[in-house]
Every structure is written in C-alpha cells, then in structure tokens.
Design a protein around this nucleic acid. Structure first.
Lengths: 211, 211
DNA sequence: CTTAGATTGTTATTATCTTAACATACGGCA
DNA sequence: TGCCGTATGTTAAGATAATAACAATCTAAG
C-alpha cells in the first residue's frame, strides 16, 4: 500500500515519537485509539496525525480509529525495525561507553558487534561481551564483517578520519556524536547528535522564555 | 538592533551551527567571510544565511561581508552565551556521567554545580569537584541555590517526578535525556535529546538510502 | 436491517520556511 | 576623489508543512 512519493523528513522524524507512544499504550493494554486521543497524548494535531499516516496509505478505519497493535507494527515496518542491526562503536570514552550500553539495551534490534578505541588502557577490556579492539584494526574488521551502523564517539579531531574509514568499509549509516559536520558521500545516511547545539538553543529559550 | 518580531525556531536551531563554524574560522585566523563562502562551508544557501542574520538586524557590510569575530560575538549574545549557567545533573549513571563531563568542558559558560543520584554506591563520590548527593536532597537544594539548567539523566520511570521537582525548584530550563515527553508548565524551556528516536530515523534512511 | 454517531482519508486553505532576485551601499583601486 | 565591483539587506516568489474542513464509510446499537 506504500505510496512511492517521497515522504517528508518531518514525517520520518515523527515516526519514532508515534512508536514510543504506541509502545506505551500497548503496555497499558489499550487496544484502539483515535487520532483525537492520540493528539492529546502526543501533542500533534489530529489532522497532522492522519495526514502523516496517509503518506503510507492510512492505517485506520473510519468510525473506529486505529488499532494500537497493528499501527505499531506498521510503523516498525516502515522504519525497518523488524530486523537486526549490527553496530560498531568507535571511541570508547565516557560517551561511547554510555551509548554502547544504551544501544545494547534494545537487544533484538541493535547488537553491539564491535568496539574500538585508541587508548591502550581501554583496548582489551570486555564491554557487553565484546573485547575493545585497537582502532587500527577497524579497516580490516570492516572488510571481513558487515556492519550496519557505525557510531562515532571520538574527539572531533579524529572524527573525519573515522568517518572515512567507516564509509570505505561500507557501513550502512553513521550515528555521529562528534561536534562537527562530517564530509560524507552524497546522500550517505547519517544522524548527527550535536549535544552542544541543543544545549545552546535551550539557553536561548531560557533567555527568551517570556516571548 | 534586535527586532521584536518572534524569531522562527528553525533559525534558532541554526545559530549554534553558525557559531560552531565561526569558532572554527576564528581558530584558523580567518577574519572575514561572505555569505557565499559561509554557504559552502555550512551547507545552507547564501540567501538563507543572510535572511537568518536579518532576523536580528543584519551583521554584515555590503561589499565586504561579515567580520568573523564580531559575527561570532553577536551570535553568542543572541543565544545568551555571555554569562555563566549553573547546571544540576540528576541521575549519575553512565549517561549522566558522560553528560556531566561533556558539559563541564565548556568551563566559562556551563558549570556543574551539583549532581544527584539515588544509588548509595554513587552518593558521596566526587565528580568534577562536586560531591554526588542523594536525590532526596534535590528539592531542598533548589530552594537554597539558583540553578539555571537541570539535566535529567534518570530512567524514564522517574523522569516526570524529577521534572516536577526541577520546575517547582524554579530552574530556568530542562535538558532531558529520558525517552519520554515530560509534562511541563506551558512554555517552560526544555530541550529533549531522544537518542533512540534519532537512531530509529537513521535506520529509516539506511533502508531508503537510494530514494 | 437500518440508522445514528463517530472517525477516517483526502482535499482545500493557511501558515511557515526557503530560495531567488535585485536595488542599495560599502570597500578598494586608479 | 570618483568609479567599479562586490556582497549585503530586503522584498518577492516558490516550496513545503501544518491546519482546517468535509464527504465517505465504518461501528455499533436497537
């Protein structure tokens, strides 16, 4: 039922949010929900919710609403969360460590397959059942193992170098935590988590709260 | 020179990005830049750059371009990065730990003033020169100390409770890492870092890379 | 089986954001 | 000092996104 027209990025950004709410409803045993009720819970207008789902053909039934369970499955399907993704974390400092554990907690979908670092003190350590390898071994590792997502949690000085290795090693996408704009092949899937950018815009709103 | 019309959220989101590039240019000793050159570096169109800056009155000079140093100062001023912000981190697990160190690295702007946790094993530890306190002490602490930003790095089950304490304690804003939508007073400044949402939309683009 | 009420899918409208165009003003050189 | 080229500020147009409106259709009750 998928329409072939390109889905706006704004819609894709909202899908994980819908999914999060639906998991919650599912957990509470709620079986059906209308766009109006969902609107109250998620904060988007009912209109927007219906239009968002319509980009994929529409999942509801008139007079009834949406079935929580099946809507959840549809969204999981659209996002591609129905298979497993192998993750390699590059940079195992505090942030890399935290992200590795965080990601690993969604076991059936994301699996930490390898971890790399440059520091001799960390190399060899066992994290999440994976032995931390020397980052020098990364290119060779990628040649022999298919990795779906490379996580960059190294200092920004070496982030581009790692990005080059990851793309050359044909990872499917990059989850970047380095505070810089990576130079990547055109259209290469990347999600940037610019923590400091977010903190700075929060500061703006703190200073303009009453406007 | 500030115009009183409301600045679009999209513009505010870009300001930290501009700032990041300008810091870089400044570090390289580059003194002036045109919207065209900046466009190449940052990826927005020259038109958009000029229009963004015009929301604040415009910082350039015709025939010359923008002075890197003064543009940088203007943006820092708009965002409010010219004073110090006191930060309280609530939840000192792996992520809280990482965020605390990360934030603290911008010394003159953000200062970790207090850290709270619920676990007896962590309470009392010294992190960044701050003794980790029992989260029970948070309400009292906020009554006696002005905190600008509360960071929520606790599990989602207790995130709302912490958010309530932070707003009651009149923090200026909340930097939320819990994967849920906090219920906050209308217009209360908050920035959500929904890590899992980002990872999920990355997955979508990995599966639709060729579209 | 029929009908009232509810709720979607979808089209139309409005708002917002982005890009383009261009006149205006400044810097720098002859 | 005057002129040319450059790059902004600003207005206009276009694209995208969000909201509103409503007809189509399903549920559920009697």
């Amino acid at each position: 039922m998928k329409k072939s027209v390109k889905v706006p990025a704004a819609v894709i950004r909202r899908l994980p949010h819908y999914l999060r709410i639906l998991e919650e409803l599912h957990g509470k045993g709620i079986e059906r929900i209308s766009s109006g009720e969902l609107s109250e819970r998620i904060g988007y207008t009912a209109s927007q919710i219906r239009q968002d789902f319509n980009h994929f053909g529409g999942f509801g039934q008139q007079g009834y609403g949406y079935n929580v369970e099946s809507l959840r499955e549809e969204i999981r399907g659209i996002l591609g969360l129905t298979r497993e993704y192998k993750i390699a974390v590059v940079g195992c400092g505090r942030l890399g460590h935290a992200i590795a554990y965080f990601t690993n907690s969604f076991e059936s979908t994301f699996v930490i397959t390898a971890i790399f670092d440059i520091s001799p003190e960390i190399i060899g350590e066992n994290i999440l059942g994976v032995e931390v390898q020397d980052v020098k071994a990364l290119p060779a590792y990628l040649k022999e193992n298919k990795i779906d997502i490379g996580v960059i949690t190294v200092p920004k000085e070496s982030a581009q170098e790692i990005a080059d290795i990851l793309t050359a090693g044909e990872v499917g996408g990059i989850w970047n935590f380095a505070p810089m704009d990576l130079d990547l092949p055109d259209g290469f899937p990347v999600y940037n988590v610019h923590l400091y950018d977010g903190l700075q815009s929060l500061v703006y709103y703190i200073n303009h709260a009453d406007e």
